[in-house]
């Protein structure tokens, strides 16, 4: 019997995911520099710029010259962060932004709420893909996780406490309640992707980082010293919202029990502490495809369905399955 093989490109999706994360991060850095270039351009005063500003001007002019005729106006097409942005007239927002704004103002402003429609539909189809594929904080957290692995290799102790994954839903609820109580979108101050985008802009174009950077560095230390990927797994309010929206996602990862040898590499690489080995994906899976990439026997694949496959027991290539079914095999041999 030949178990079905996953499509061969899917084990390379993880590389595409890294590329996507890096592109998003680079855009978040590039956009503030483009903004500076626009302002220099609008001022028509190249000769008055400081040498460092002239360098920014020259580099940005080199980058954008082939695409724009009037940089001061044309570059307005691409603005913003993953929290809220505009791309050639298409306005997109993180679903948490309208939700938090509704909580803060206790009213609905539909033109803004609709900017989250496309992300919500995509999340309903692809699950919590934002966290794994786009979130600029995720890139830093993953690199931070790699740093933790290096530190462990070098003999340092890094934290590996596990908390209840449901805490983040409490954080989401509490954040919304506090937003309503203070009448301010205060949840944006503890939401890492919003912080990273904003602080990149503040640091580059508004003359220095703000308080969000302190919070973000705190979460990095938390991940490093207390709990691996702890903020995303247990605390992130946006992750909680995406998890809820992606609970009945159409595209999900599934284990092919016939090819699985119970090596548990998938459980080790899973950034979100899930249990692919025992078919435990659940609503918190980001479809990041890291487990597919690491699987040595091609036992993980994408599938279409609104629920996870029920637990399938030990993998057929594994020792446990052989031990359990081996008796029959040996009896048959005799």
């Amino acid at each position: 019997m030949h178990p079905s093989k996953p499509f061969f490109l899917w084990r390379h999706l993880n590389k595409l995911r890294w590329a996507s994360l890096i592109v998003v991060a680079l855009m978040l850095i590039l956009i503030p520099f483009l903004h500076l270039y626009q302002t220099y351009n609008a001022a028509h005063a190249y000769d008055l710029l400081a040498p460092s500003e002239k360098r920014i001007f020259d580099v940005m002019e080199f980058l954008t010259d082939p695409f724009t005729s009037d940089p001061a106006e044309d570059l307005d097409a691409l603005k913003g962060t993953t929290w809220s942005g505009t791309f050639w007239g298409l306005r997109l927002s993180d679903p948490l932004a309208p939700l938090a704004q509704m909580a803060a103002s206790l009213s609905v402003y539909w033109p803004f709420a609709l900017t989250a429609l496309i992300p919500i539909v995509l999340t309903a189809i692809f699950g919590r893909f934002f966290c794994g594929w786009i979130c600029p904080a995720n890139l830093i957290y993953e690199l931070n996780g790699n740093l933790a692995a290096w530190l462990r290799w070098a003999g340092f102790r890094t934290g590996d406490y596990q908390f209840d994954k449901r805490i983040k839903y409490g954080v989401l609820a509490l954040g919304l309640v506090l937003s309503a109580a203070t009448g301010s979108v205060i949840i944006a101050a503890i939401y890492p992707p919003a912080i990273v985008g904003r602080e990149a802009y503040f640091g580059i174009a508004v003359g220095g980082f703000g308080a969000g950077m302190v919070f973000f560095l705190g979460t990095l230390l938390f991940d490093l010293l207390v709990s691996r990927r702890g903020f995303c797994r247990y605390l992130c309010p946006g992750g909680a919202l995406y998890s809820l929206l992606g609970r009945y996602r159409a595209l999900r990862i599934q284990r092919i029990v016939e090819s699985c040898n119970d090596c548990a590499k998938c459980n080790v690489v899973c950034e979100f502490g899930l249990d692919p080995l025992r078919d435990g994906f659940g609503q918190e899976c980001t479809n990041c495809a890291a487990c597919i990439a690491v699987c040595p026997t091609d036992a993980l694949t994408f599938t279409v369905g609104f629920r996870d496959h029920p637990a399938q027991g030990p993998g057929h290539l594994g020792r446990q399955y052989k031990r359990e079914s081996g008796a029959d095999f040996e009896e048959a041999a005799e």
């Binding site: 503030p32 626009q38 302002t39 929290w83 809220s84 942005g85 979108v185 174009a205 508004v206």
Partner: peptide, 24 residues
């Protein structure tokens, strides 16, 4: 305060860069 989500877009388009933010 209730309506603003702190996305920074207004500052990112401001030609004279007069819009600043309550950063801390």
């Amino acid at each position: 305060t209730a309506a603003c989500i702190g996305c920074g877009l207004c500052g990112e388009v401001c030609p004279p860069r007069c819009i600043k933010f309550h950063k801390s």
